[in-house]
Amino acid sequence: MPVPSASEVSALPPHGEGVSGDRSVQRALEDAWPADLPAIDERELLDAGGALLRADATGIGRARWPTVFSRTARAVTPAFASARFRVQAAVARRGKRPGTAVVHLVWAGMDRGGTYTDLRVTEWQFTRKTTMKGTSTWTPQSR
């Protein structure tokens, strides 16, 4: 996947811009990685990627992902407070191998020490799994 150029990065809002800067962050992600998945897959991946990120950062919902978060990880106090957590932008794109995808997320959050940081970047890798009934779902790859 291509890395955004310096001109694309400069289009990002300054740190601390808040919710008003999120739209430009979303545009920068979409410009850097043009859409290449069916809309239904992208929506499913974005929903799962956002939920995984929230679970990872804040601890909320880790039990939903037992293959990603071990029992120990589900019990660990998270580093970020849920009250100041938000996804600023996200895109889901095809992975390098067939049947894979990656969700790129840019997010903001306040850690337990009170330091607020935005424009954090996380990626989640997914694999398409087909059930016995012939339906398919996107499954996160454990880290």
Score class of each variant (00 low, 15 high):
3 V>E: 07
3 V>G: 10
7 S>N: 02
12 L>I: 02
12 L>G: 09
13 P>T: 02
17 E>S: 15
18 G>T: 06
19 V>W: 09
21 G>D: 11
21 G>H: 12
24 S>Y: 08
25 V>G: 10
25 V>R: 14
27 R>L: 11
29 L>Q: 13
29 L>Y: 03
30 E>V: 14
31 D>E: 13
32 A>L: 07
32 A>C: 11
33 W>E: 13
35 A>M: 07
35 A>E: 06
39 A>E: 15
39 A>Y: 03
39 A>M: 00
40 I>E: 15
40 I>N: 11
41 D>L: 09
42 E>S: 15
43 R>F: 00
44 E>C: 01
44 E>M: 01
48 A>I: 01
49 G>W: 03
51 A>F: 02
52 L>D: 01
54 R>D: 05
55 A>W: 06
58 T>N: 07
59 G>S: 06
60 I>S: 05
61 G>N: 00
64 R>S: 07
67 T>S: 15
68 V>W: 10
71 R>L: 09
72 T>D: 02
72 T>R: 13
74 R>K: 15
80 F>R: 05
82 S>C: 10
83 A>N: 03
87 V>Y: 02
88 Q>M: 14
90 A>W: 05
95 G>M: 06
97 R>P: 05
99 G>Q: 03
104 H>N: 12
105 L>N: 01
107 W>N: 10
109 G>H: 12
114 G>W: 02
116 Y>D: 13
117 T>Q: 15
119 L>P: 00
121 V>W: 01
123 E>Y: 03
127 T>D: 06
130 T>F: 09
132 M>F: 10
132 M>D: 15
135 T>S: 09
136 S>T: 12
138 W>Q: 02
142 S>Q: 14
